[in-house]
Design a protein around this nucleic acid. Sequence first.
DNA 1: GTCTATATTGTGATAGAC
DNA 2: GTCTATCACAATATAGAC
Lengths: 182, 182
Amino acid sequence: MTNRRDEIVHVAGALLERGGPDGLTMRAIASEMGIKAPSLYKHIADKRELEVALIADGFLQQAEAFEKAVADGGEPVVAIAEAYRRWAMDHPHLYALMNDQPLPREELPEGVEQRSVAPVLEAFAGDRDRARAAWAFAHGMVTLELADRFPPDADVERAWRIGITSIAHGPTPTEGEAHGGT
Amino acid sequence: MTNRRDEIVHVAGALLERGGPDGLTMRAIASEMGIKAPSLYKHIADKRELEVALIADGFLQQAEAFEKAVADGGEPVVAIAEAYRRWAMDHPHLYALMNDQPLPREELPEGVEQRSVAPVLEAFAGDRDRARAAWAFAHGMVTLELADRFPPDADVERAWRIGITSIAHGPTPTEGEAHGGT
DNA sequence: GTCTATATTGTGATAGAC
DNA sequence: GTCTATCACAATATAGAC
């Protein structure tokens, strides 16, 4: 760790995944570092700054995961969907921190959001709306899985396959369609 | 209100939507009713019991909304999707309470979950996996909308149309498909 | 850069009187 | 069924000494 601030952010990230948002307290971070909570404020302004740093790091991690998934070959949409799911399952609490509130775009380093979105957009040949639909599907699947909201007997794998295949290859509605039927 | 317990649940629901989960405190409920917090415990065991009652009521409301949407005509899948979205937007905090944690199936009145799912399942001709994919898509769209996570220029309406149309009419993957691509 | 002491605010819940 | 008094905790954050 190059400096004390980075060390704090690193410890905060570990604590977040270990104990969820309730486990991420200034006292716990300090305790983990062998110091007292008030000392942290010599290095960071407040807890919010810490969260923003974690969010920025999360997007970087996602971007790398997506880029690697595409590079490894196969259908890009499928590869990214699998990487998206895996990353979320591996970082459930950071995932929630990143997605359950408005993105603090002003406070984030520039390009962070764009870089993680780029591979997805490319996989959908620049169709932002379809890419967004796919994102929403993946986000819904992931949050329902993480919240243990599917019935015990649900075939989650198959729901993933149906959703991804459908959105990747499904029909494009004409203007006004899907509101009245045909 | 037939009895004091129902009154408490009703007030709790109003408070939840007005002030979010942080606004739902025993003190606030009591204050709204003109009594003190400890008095509530003569009518309910604890806060959890209150939340479960709110969840059960939410599913009943959803079921009614879906049934009405189907009865009003049009493509059932589209009608239910629109009803799902509207209900969530109208009850954002109750929606989160219902979906961000495992369903307390043991504590819920019987049939509550099933009744709200039935119209969806029927709209998908009994295909549970496709219905589940549609649910995940709708859940993802709704949560991203409620969390204000879409970029400001996003065409949310069109993403809805693409997702619903695709999942309703998209191809059914054969076993193993969508993992290797063709 | 760390400490102690403290302000401030909040929560759910119980005991026991009336 | 309601009250007062209170327990037991926990949180973020600041002041000021060292």
